[in-house]
Amino acid sequence: MSLTNDQVRGIARLARLRLTDEEVSEVSGKLASILEMVDQLQATDTREVVPMAHPLDAAQRLRPDEVTEADQRDDYQRNAPQTERGLYLVPRVVE
């Protein structure tokens, strides 16, 4: 298993991670060895095996759709990098 630098950049783009050139070459070898280790799974016969999503085989609990939380916007926005009048600010998206 090997990954080209371009493949690594492609994965990083999907993951929204900016990598330096140095990071790209470091990651490609390590990622390849991880995926190679993971490839051991392919030798296992899993026909008819139901995929397991939850360790206790429990169904997702439902609750009535009721408003239970008070407004805590000010509390939560204290951690935001940039806000204005209760809104989160990001660079202009639509010109």
Binding site: V8, I11, A12, L14, A15, L17, L19, E23, V27, K30, L31, I34, L35, V38, L41, Q42, T44, T46, V49, V50, P51, M52, A53
Partner: peptide, 28 residues
């Protein structure tokens, strides 16, 4: 970053069955 990229790779289009689904079966 490595783990995010590993996860992104195994979940990406065309690889889901070979990795994620397979792993969930072996988990069983």
């Amino acid at each position: 970053k490595r783990r995010i990229m590993t996860g992104t790779y195994v979940l990406s289009a065309g690889y889901y069955d070979a990795y994620y689904l397979k792993a969930q079966q072996v988990r069983q």
